[in-house]
Design a protein around this nucleic acid. Structure first.
Length: 589
RNA sequence: GGGGUGUUAGCUCAGCUGGUUUAGAGCGUCUGCCUGUCACGCAGAAGGUCGAGGGUUCGAGCCCCUUACAUCCCGCCA
């Protein structure tokens, strides 16, 4: 490594130990904290590498007055601390600098919020002074860990034989679903570039060009409303491979991800199995296309148990095509009434359900539902729920019931403490339907995923089978209920591509127009290929356990309105700048 | 576009059912004291248009309306 020595320092604030006792050293850094004992002054000096205590015997009037976070240079002698003065919390805690000279390099004003300590501060203030926020221990470490993880991923991909590419950021709008960010072109009147939602087309073109194994730490942009789990601009570990089948692509994910987690979260318990769960199964048993497998609760369909029963609301709904899903809550039979009331409240307010039916299987089955059902039906439900438990019911049209049941499952898992946050449960969700009904077009088929996916069907099957039974060669990797990755095999066959677009209601010309580059490329010899993109920010966040927000893993994130409060972006531009790019601002509304 | 929650000192927050003076606490800041602290300690001081505007009331930080901003969720989004 390059020496960190300079005229400002002989050592960093994190490296001095008992071995250095007696040396004269110079350190530079931020005044982290002062402890003024009158004629004895302690200064904790901090830099990127650590904290070193400097002691001024006899005190120092000028230094006593300096504000925390001022940057100073100190020269002094390394001395061993007395046994009772050793601080085991920091690596440099066995020594201190008995200081002779010091000088201010830059002064700090009084801080808008403390750098020292971990007191919560509002995001608005933190983002306005992000440079201060980034000095705080936790965020500073997050960013350093992000660096290390990205380097690890890059090295790993190189080791696996992939080549690293860059692709354009100023490119064309691509048909992936999300809105693109647009950039006006000065040289081309009335035309716009789009920032990529992902380098999808480029990485496929690189396959057609014969590069065989592609990866990129790729910036991606989507102009959609933000959430704590979505960033304005985010990064994907973007991968594409030629001459592969689904298992070959997934093998790369299985090679990289568990090892990444174990490397950067040594305390983590990574489940050894990575099960494959079909989309249909995921929706039924977990009520989600991103199941959290740490949660042991499994949902069941109990529509048939309620069909023809005296529980009229459900029985009628089932006759009219609705389904009933049951969510068992283990060891909850002795919960107080208020616990059930709170869940009912959650179901009605958050999930928009009419109410929440449940049976408590304590000494004997209890609850309004239980009274309406005969013994045989109760027995079947008891078997699903298990002893000393309760069983919750959601009744609605299938998709809504599944999703509501899934949310209830998550809620119960959290409330009952069934989920260990340092467990990592990885799974593949696959066998997605290739087409889904488009409500805007009277239920006609539309692409479920992006139109790049390959259908698991021959040309003939595409013509003869019910489109809604066709599955996609497409998968997600889900970790702890978070969608980390999406990938699959690509549609590289112009004939099959045309057929798929035909079924989805697009004229052939639309393929040639929207997919011009790929469609043309595929006519000159395209290898079968597939790949995936991992959400790097989500991976980092989950591995670090930062909890709530992806923004805690990014040095300069935008706020929820897509603004950077430090740089003041987005901002207004001058009339001349607008004229240069041929743009006129429309009035609001 | 819709909904929840919030906005009180530089920061984090308390402030009960509308009525204890001059709206409080901790941290920070400032002043003084302190030779072994490491969240140092002790004493004191400054610091407030209670987001803004309007209303109800004898009386509003608290109730109502409008509005701004923040944050989270739904819609949207891989």
């Amino acid at each position: 490594m390059l020496s960190l020595k300079s005229k400002y320092r002989t050592h960093t604030c994190g490296e001095l130990t008992e071995k250095n006792v007696g040396e004269t050293v110079t350190l530079s850094g931020w005044v982290h904290r002062k402890r003024d004992h009158g004629s004895l002054l302690f200064v904790d000096l901090r830099d990127n590498y650590g904290i070193t205590q400097c002691v001024f015997d006899g005190g120092d009037e000028n230094l006593e007055k300096i504000h925390p976070e001022s940057v100073i240079k100190i020269t002094g002698t390394v001395v061993a601390r007395d046994a009772e003065a050793i601080n085991d919390k920091i690596p440099t805690g066995h020594i201190e600098i008995k200081s002779g000279k010091w000088e201010v390099l830059t002064n700090a004003d009084v801080l808008p919020f403390p750098v020292f300590g971990d007191e919560d501060t509002g995001e608005e203030l933190r983002y306005k002074y992000r440079f201060l926020d980034l000095r705080r221990e936790k965020l500073h470490n997050n960013i350093l860990m992000r660096n290390k993880m990205i380097k690890w991923m890059r090295d790993k991909m190189w080791d696996l034989g992939f080549s690293e590419f860059q692709t354009p950021l100023l490119t064309a709008d691509s048909p992936e679903g999300a809105r693109c960010f647009l950039v006006p072109s000065r040289l081309n009147h009335g035309k716009f570039y789009a920032l990529p939602q992902a380098p999808q087309m480029f990485k496929q073109l690189l396959q057609v060009s014969g590069f065989d194994r592609y990866f990129q730490i790729a910036p991606c942009f989507r102009d959609e409303d933000l959430r704590s789990d979505r960033l304005l601009e985010f990064y994907q570990l973007d991968v594409e491979m030629s001459f592969v089948d689904l298992p070959d692509v997934q093998a790369v994910g299985e090679e990289v991800i568990p090892e990444l987690i174990k490397t950067f979260a040594p305390d983590a318990n990574v489940y050894p199995e990575i099960p494959h769960i079909s989309f249909d199964d995921a929706m039924l048993k977990y009520g989600s296309d991103k199941p959290d497998l740490r949660n042991p609760i499994l949902i069941s369909d109990v529509s048939e148990i309620f069909r023809g029963s005296d529980f009229g609301i459900f029985a009628n709904a089932v006759e009219n095509g609705s389904v009933v899903r049951a969510i068992p809550a283990p060891n909850s039979a002795d919960k107080p009434r208020s616990w059930f009331d709170k869940l009912t409240d959650y179901a009605t307010k958050e999930l928009g359900l009419g109410g929440l039916a449940y049976i408590v299987f304590g000494d004997e089955p209890k609850g309004p539902v239980a009274k309406k059902l005969d013994a045989e039906r109760i027995a079947k439900l008891h078997e699903i729920a298990g002893d000393n438990s309760s069983l919750f019911f959601v009744c609605d049209e299938e998709e809504k019931a599944a999703k509501a049941a899934g949310k209830l499952r998550n809620k119960l898992g959290a409330d009952l403490g069934l989920v260990n946050p340092r467990d990592f449960a990885i799974c593949w969700v696959d066998n997605f339907p290739f087409f889904e009904p488009d409500e805007d077009r009277g239920g006609a088929p539309k692409f479920t995923h992006n139109p790049f996916s390959y259908p698991i069907a021959t040309l003939e099957e595409l013509s003869t089978k019910d489109p809604f039974t066709i599955k996609a060669a497409q998968f997600d990797m889900v970790i702890n209920g978070i969608e980390m990755c999406s990938g699959g095999l690509r549609n590289y066959n112009p004939e099959i591509m045309k057929k798929c677009f035909d079924i989805a209601g697009y004229p052939i010309e639309a393929v040639e127009k929207n997919f011009s580059a790929l469609y043309t490329a595929f006519k000159y010899g395209a290898p079968p290929h597939g790949g995936f993109g991992f959400g790097i920010d989500r991976l980092i966040s989950e591995i670090l356990g930062t909890g709530e927000s992806l923004r805690e893993t990014v040095a300069f994130p935008a706020n929820q309105r897509g603004q950077d409060l430090l740089m003041g972006s987005p901002n207004e531009v001058t009339e001349q700048q607008l004229r240069d790019v041929h743009i006129k601002i429309r009035n609001k509304g």
